[in-house]
């Protein structure tokens, strides 16, 4: 009964966007065919689908390459971001001195930084991973910092009253209460890390083995296969969605018992 109810509710929630998608795809197909648009300018949805199916092995391999850079970048950004946020929340003077530059650094586009990374680390996985890290780290730092600085003052006083050390206050109080913020930061970072990896691949990607999706896009573009460009973009979006979904699921499992955002 409740399961059937859940299905009904899911269908009810899902039909408007699904219908929208079908209408858009059909309209695209019709307009492109009717106007006889050149394939290399805008490929019809059916052409993109065909490219997706024909090159599925290649695209899947590329997706794995990009995924590993994005996930590694994401993992490093999470660990490093949390550590930096702890440092900033502990030393207010450091926070005041450093934070403005971090905000500034955050506005510098990765594409501009990527060539420098290639000079330092050479083209390939390292540089691409660092690109993903650079775009993913700021939301994690900013959100974790907010969480660490908004610990319930009464609880901090209680910990103080029982002589809690800095370390146990951090571990037993401040980090767990910042967890919802950390998850929010990671959620934002998950999509960004894929973008960072692909942009990194534009500049620092290499052609050997399974090239990443960014490289795939560049090559497809160069040989005039716009349908393949679009297929690669779809694969990149799918990757972003999978990463976002994974973080969401992890967040849900961690927070469902106690945090209002994940209850029900």
């Amino acid at each position: 009964m409740s399961r059937a109810g859940a299905i009904v509710r899911a269908v009810r929630a899902a039909w408007p966007p699904v219908l929208m998608l079908v209408v858009m795809v059909l309209a695209g197909e019709l307009i492109i065919r009717a106007c006889d648009v050149e394939e290399y300018l805008v490929p019809a949805p059916s052409a993109v689908l065909k490219a997706l199916v024909d090159s599925r092995r290649e695209l899947f391999g590329s997706m794995l390459t990009t995924a590993s850079a994005a996930m590694m970048g994401m993992a490093c950004a999470t660990v490093l971001g949390i550590l930096i946020a702890i440092l900033l929340s502990t030393a207010r003077l450091v926070q005041r001195a450093v934070y403005p530059y971090m905000v500034f650094f955050q506005t510098v586009p990765v594409v501009a930084i990527a060539p420098v990374l290639v000079i330092w680390f050479g083209p390939g996985l390292h540089s691409v991973t660092i690109c993903a890290l650079i775009v993913a780290i700021f939301p994690i730092i900013a959100n974790t910092l907010t969480g660490l600085l908004s610990t319930d003052p009464a609880l901090r006083e209680m910990f103080h009253l029982y002589g809690a050390s800095w370390w146990s206050t951090l571990w037993k109080l401040r980090l767990p209460s910042a967890l919802p913020n950390i998850v929010t930061g990671m959620r934002i970072a998950s999509g960004l890390s894929v973008i960072g990896a692909i942009v990194g691949e534009f500049v620092a990607g290499v052609l050997q083995g399974n090239a990443g999706l960014g490289v795939e896009v560049m090559i497809a573009k160069r040989i005039g296969r716009t349908d393949l460009v679009f297929a690669a973009i779809l694969a990149a979006s799918a990757l972003g969605l999978v990463m976002f979904g994974a973080i969401n699921l992890a967040g849900h499992l961690l927070l469902r018992r106690w945090h209002a955002s994940e209850r029900n």
């Binding site: 209680m158 029982y162 146990s168 037993k172």
Partner: peptide, 19 residues
């Protein structure tokens, strides 16, 4: 002012843990 991520038992244990 309880720790929302801890059960009742683990909340009551907090002061003892800190001591």
């Amino acid at each position: 002012h309880l720790l929302p991520w801890r059960t009742v038992l683990r909340n009551v244990e907090v002061p003892l843990e800190l001591l």
